[in-house]
Amino acid sequence: MATDHAEEPTRRDFLYIATGAVGAVGAAALAWPFIDQLNPDASVLALASIEVDLSTIDEGGAVTVTWRGKPVFIRHRTEAEIEAAKTVDISELRDPQTDAERVKRPEWLVMLGICTHLGCVPLGEKGEYDGWFCPCHGSHYDTSGRIRKGPAPLNLEVPEYAFIEDNRIKIG
């Protein structure tokens, strides 16, 4: 055997390897459609943005709308809540972010109502920081939706949105 290995590769060896390589590339290329079909399809992606009228939400009130199949919390914050959110010492936060980085206008807090732990919907005006509390495994969020206590690693996510009128936003 040892002497066999020392011999020059033959034309047949080359053909074997080349055939195998072409076959492997072909199999990989064919596998992709079978995997990619699992990804979000065109009809799911088409529902990508919504508009919400804010004029009906009084101070201290909140609504939950659905965007891309996910709940979005829109909260008209009170002065006290804004104050509480602003005066937090950033350095003691798990996911440091100022309140200003999380809002476009301080009275409107817009964020995904999805706990960053394992995806439950937190309950409003609950928890040790009077923001949100997730009942699933006990995550507490403050009045800016930042994670303060519990297993969740990140603040509630702020989606991409814009004020298209004074009292109207477009999410997505």
Binding site: I35, N39, P40, V44, G69, I114, L118, C120, C136
Partner: peptide, 27 residues
């Protein structure tokens, strides 16, 4: 929701894996 989100905890491939599992942005 909770069980599929467990896979989202995997670093780097977590998020793409989730949309692969869900076929959308949520269950």
């Amino acid at each position: 929701t909770v069980i599929t989100n467990l896979f989202g905890a995997i670093p780097l491939i977590g998020d793409p894996l989730l949309s692969l599992l869900w076929g959308g942005f949520a269950v």
